[in-house]
């Protein structure tokens, strides 16, 4: 059973070289696997453990701690809506309600076509341009007046 690809192993080894101890590359390894596969399966956890000389339980203890490591499959695009205080003051609830309505899903769910997963996230550090959200790696700001049509247009960019 080969749990990680050559490429994944290569990338993990590169990160591992940055640290005094191999275990320190655990988070990087999880992110590398997630970059390639979208999420981290039990197999991948075992693969990372084997590569870093750790145990699957120890790797999973780390994986399940961090909210940006997905231990279940997610959609092609993850929409993270900032639900922290400045965005809340500036109308985040309206934004997330709109997203839920347009996508037809609640937080933690994935659209049936596997395109979007919707999650809340804490402060994105762009509070002067609140409310904000992250789709994939793109931060979208100044969404106070975003309406359904504008949102649809925005989502169009994420096939």
């Amino acid at each position: 059973m080969k749990m990680l690809t050559e490429e994944e192993n290569r990338e993990i080894d590169r990160e591992r070289a940055h640290y005094e101890q191999p275990r320190a590359a655990t988070i990087e390894a999880l992110k590398i696997v997630q970059k390639h596969r979208g999420w981290v399966s039990d197999d991948a956890v075992a693969g990372i453990a084997a590569r870093l000389g750790s145990s699957p339980a120890a790797v999973d203890a780390v994986a399940t701690f961090y909210n940006l490591i997905y231990r279940r499959p997610v959609g092609r695009h993850v929409v993270h809506v900032c639900d922290s205080v400045s965005c809340w003051v500036m109308g985040q609830t309206k934004l997330s309600d709109l997203l839920k309505a347009r996508l037809g899903i609640d937080y933690g769910q994935t659209t049936p076509d596997g395109r979007f997963t919707l999650l809340p996230i804490c402060c994105l550090g762009t509070c002067d341009r609140a409310p904000a959200m992250l789709i994939g790696e793109d931060t979208h700001r100044d969404l106070e007046t975003l309406d359904a049509a504008a949102l649809d247009a925005l989502l169009e960019r994420y096939p």
Binding site: V85, G125, D128
Partner: peptide
């Protein structure tokens, strides 16, 4: 790590 809500300076 800048994650303190309301903080957007280090970015």
């Amino acid at each position: 790590d800048e994650m303190e809500p309301g903080t957007f300076k280090d970015r």
